[in-house]
Design a protein around this nucleic acid. Sequence first.
DNA 1: AATGAATGAGTATTCATTCAT
DNA 2: GATGAATGAATACTCATTCAT
Lengths: 220, 220, 220, 220
Amino acid sequence: MSQPDMIKELLLAQDQDGKLSEKQVKILEAAVEIFSEKGYAATSTSEIAKKAGVAEGTIFRHYKTKKDLLMSIVTPTLTKVLAPFMARDFVKKVFENDHNSFEDFIRLLIKNRYEFAKKNLPIIKIFLQEIAFHEEIREQYKAIFNEQVKKKFFAIIEHFQEKGEITDLPPTTVIRLSITTVIGHLFTRFIVLPNQDWDDEAEIERTIEYIMKGLRKDER
Amino acid sequence: MSQPDMIKELLLAQDQDGKLSEKQVKILEAAVEIFSEKGYAATSTSEIAKKAGVAEGTIFRHYKTKKDLLMSIVTPTLTKVLAPFMARDFVKKVFENDHNSFEDFIRLLIKNRYEFAKKNLPIIKIFLQEIAFHEEIREQYKAIFNEQVKKKFFAIIEHFQEKGEITDLPPTTVIRLSITTVIGHLFTRFIVLPNQDWDDEAEIERTIEYIMKGLRKDER
Amino acid sequence: MSQPDMIKELLLAQDQDGKLSEKQVKILEAAVEIFSEKGYAATSTSEIAKKAGVAEGTIFRHYKTKKDLLMSIVTPTLTKVLAPFMARDFVKKVFENDHNSFEDFIRLLIKNRYEFAKKNLPIIKIFLQEIAFHEEIREQYKAIFNEQVKKKFFAIIEHFQEKGEITDLPPTTVIRLSITTVIGHLFTRFIVLPNQDWDDEAEIERTIEYIMKGLRKDER
Amino acid sequence: MSQPDMIKELLLAQDQDGKLSEKQVKILEAAVEIFSEKGYAATSTSEIAKKAGVAEGTIFRHYKTKKDLLMSIVTPTLTKVLAPFMARDFVKKVFENDHNSFEDFIRLLIKNRYEFAKKNLPIIKIFLQEIAFHEEIREQYKAIFNEQVKKKFFAIIEHFQEKGEITDLPPTTVIRLSITTVIGHLFTRFIVLPNQDWDDEAEIERTIEYIMKGLRKDER
DNA sequence: AATGAATGAGTATTCATTCAT
DNA sequence: GATGAATGAATACTCATTCAT
């Protein structure tokens, strides 16, 4: 039920000394579970305390406010959602090897994000819900995206456009269409119809094929 | 800011005699606006009352509970989101005219939903947020989708597959990929980057092209 | 279920012209029923209106306040509870006929009050409950008792003491003991154990005998 | 005004460890006082909080609901009202000493209950008022009476009937008449006319005499 | 560090009452 | 006379947060 890896990573992100109090783990686990089920606003701190098996006051020893607790969950996730594009050598790797194709790139992306979504589902749900209501989260996200991700993504798209692998639509549009399709797959897979029988291997390949065909340069 | 048409339609859905008390309109307008900004759980009835310019008690004369008020906003929207597929002669129209292509169908769909999204944005936001937290909304939505929409959509997809216009992937996958792309466009357009300069005509055409190419039958 | 006679008498007491609007009857019936079940404070006017089948406002056309409605039920009852002792010729009748005994008096009293309790139970319940909480009711009751009943009762007791039929205890004590026993019988009969099988004839005779023996003058 | 002994006993009944928070005492004192004056339904929790000198939330930390608070007052009283009859050796004591008379029994009862009523008046008032409106209280009372008191009382009455000390009326009737007279005395003394000058010693003896004579076996 | 009692502002909802129709 | 929409104060209860232990 609980996903200890996920929580451990959250804790590492929060407490660089690695001093993870046992109570703190319990609080985070409880918060993630309830926030993702009922939403931040509809969750009470006393509920979290009860599920975590700690006193109400203990939460506030570790997190100044309820919102602090939320942010301590959401902020590390923020970066991890975009993580693949933030690695320093990410673009370099894509470029340097001449026989890397756009398809390889998309396949890498889709599989990587599939694993990430699978592992971090509850936190991602919280993130998706709360970004709509908290300006700070939006700001943080935009900052990271604009400063660290945007340029790299553009570079990649333009690289493959120059190589003639994909259509010459405006890069913004290419990015929108491809990301949208990737996210749409994950969303359907994990949130809309998580209980349906999925042949994940096949579905991923079909999604890749759809993107590739959709973005293929018209040979004319 | 307020979208009177949208509210009027809500009221018509609620009160078939068209007896729209002025206060009731104000309450709905206020509720839609605040719910969509802050979310249902984070919105207080006193806030709604203040913005609507009515006494707090007045809200409860028209809606038994706060949740009732939410449902009176969401339920009519539920059907309208799926409306195009619920029209009786919808499938017939698609089929009967032999020169109707899959592209015509997608273009109709995408333009129609674009207009709908543009007009009903706040309510759609509420709907998207709250469907995650309220079992009843999910149930209602599933019921409508399964009973009224699913079969028709399958019929259409299979029709065009038989005509050889689109690829022979499982219809479920075809539906997922196309709907995902349409929704992804609207989501980016109206929610993620509503303030960006959009050349909507062009962007719609590009989206259609992407879907068409992505689903095109491999000629081999 | 409803006791129309009881209500009619209430109405007569309230409206000397006998103009009993149909709605007014319904309101009183509803109020008596709900007040006696749940108590005045726990009953809402909207509940009364609903049960009476009238609009909320209609109650306040006939009774200025909710308390007014209560008083219009309780006040006439006030006098009727003590009615036998208020009749002008009550004492005279007891005295004038030389062969009237104390036992006759007690028997008359006990039977008369038994019939009264049987017929007016719900109103009496209201009266008993609310006299504890409303100073006005207490004041009214004391006034009537002191001005109209006390002296007569004393006169009767002293009359039979002089005749040597009953013990020479202080009249206050005699009154307390006899009234207490009469009321105690009715209370057990109608409120504590109303559903038990009662042989009322026998039980009344036993009660009379108990009072008679308890108050008999010691022959010595 | 407040009766600390009474409250202390309530607290002991509620908290067997004797850990009586000071605030909790204040809350109970305030609740007893206001409930007994205005009745449960007409008393607001904010009023109790104010009189107790605590925050409104504090009440709900100790008692889940307002009704819980009422029950925590009424339930211990329930048993104490019937306490004399619940002692294990109660009947034995009455029987074993051959020269114990019915009069001794009644005198013991009447004096004991007089002291009890004197000490617990406000709580008894609450009990008497609220038993009329709360099914749970009635059920609890009936259960205790039927299981613990009824049989013993019958045994005592039948014992003295066999000894020829009291009349051969049905025991139910004997019980009704005697209890009614005892309660009637207390009711008049403490509730109807608490402010009158009472010669309690004398009045108690007169009441005992009335019961004894009323129930005496006719010698014939 | 951890507790949990205490707080008082805030919550959804109900209430008795008014008044235009 | 009767209605019922409208009110705003009041209600029981919850909340995030504080702080003495």
